[in-house]
């Protein structure tokens, strides 16, 4: 750990802004970039300020600044290796930022002890590309375990919640199946139920459909769309599903080489990309 740090060039970032000030600046910056309907005195739920991340000497994220508003759906696009997933993993502290600030609900999560990080991390749900269900537990137990172990809910309470969430993703009848007995799409839907059952402030999706057979993608996207439209969940979605981005996103963020190249309302970015790199990428995706 120590040895690795010595390789890194120290990155100086300014101290984090105070909440009111940050909210004002963020609103000014974002109000034309998203379909999110701003409320009076609203604060961003996720604030990323000057986020830098290096692996050894490779800079993966360079000075990312991004604010996500409560209930907003942000879709992050970009070619492979552009740092999209790394940014998500930093928000969840699965990666430790090299420099910069990440604030959830105006609380800084970077530079905390493990115990504090675990507590703050409850507010951030994550859906992985490879599902990462716990294979020794049934679907229902997968949804329950975070509630009982972390939120210390009673078993009955957790079970009721699990049943509700599995119903929401259309898998009530698979509650007692173990992950290997479920299809990839079903597993991913269970994973979404597991994350939602924790009632996080923000839910991160790391290419949730990339590992799925094409015919299973739609079921997962339907669940995500339902989540975005009907439950008002704040979502940051890294995906290559352009249709989903165009239809569901409040804002589209285009990243390349660890930098946010362009962001804006989906139809603006898709139909009139301002940046040539964005245009090229969208063209190549078709």
């Amino acid at each position: 750990m120590c040895a690795r740090k010595s390789h890194e060039t120290k990155i100086e970032v300014p101290a984090t802004l105070d909440a009111e000030n940050a909210a004002r600046i963020a609103l000014a910056a974002d109000k034309d970039l998203t379909y999110h309907g701003f409320a009076e005195g609203e604060h961003p739920i996720v604030r990323i300020e000057h986020l830098n991340k290096s692996f050894d000497q490779t800079k993966v994220l360079r000075d990312i600044n991004l604010d996500v508003w409560p209930g907003e759906v942000v879709v992050v696009l970009g070619p492979s290796g552009s740092g999209k997933s790394t940014m998500l993993r930093c928000i969840n502290l699965l990666e430790t930022p090299t420099a910069g600030h990440i604030l959830i609900d105006d609380q800084e999560i970077t530079g905390k002890s493990n115990a504090d990080a675990n507590r703050l991390r409850r507010d951030v749900g994550m859906v992985f590309q490879s599902f990462n269900l716990f294979p020794h537990l049934t679907a229902k137990q997968n949804v329950m375990i975070g509630q009982t172990k972390v939120l210390k809910k009673s078993k009955a309470e957790a079970e009721a919640e699990a049943q509700r969430q599995l119903e929401a993703v259309g898998l009530a009848d698979r509650a007692d199946f173990k992950p290997p007995q479920l299809s990839g799409g079903q597993q991913q839907r269970v994973a979404i139920a597991r994350a939602v059952a924790m009632h996080p402030a923000v839910l991160l999706f790391d290419e949730p459909t990339s590992a799925l057979d094409p015919e299973l993608v739609r079921g997962v996207l339907d669940v995500m769309r339902d989540l975005a439209k009907n439950s008002g969940m704040t979502m940051i979605v890294v995906t290559h599903e352009m249709g989903f981005a165009r239809e569901v996103a409040d804002r589209v963020v285009f990243m390349e080489d660890g930098v946010v190249v362009e962001q804006g309302k989906p139809d603006h970015v898709f139909d009139h990309p301002q940046n040539p790199r964005t245009a090229e990428f969208l063209g190549s995706i078709g």
């Binding site: 991390r121 994550m126 975070g146 172990k149 972390v150 994350a195």
Partner: peptide, 8 residues
């Protein structure tokens, strides 16, 4: 990672 992201 899945366990961590649940806050365990």
């Amino acid at each position: 990672e899945a366990a961590s992201s649940l806050g365990m």
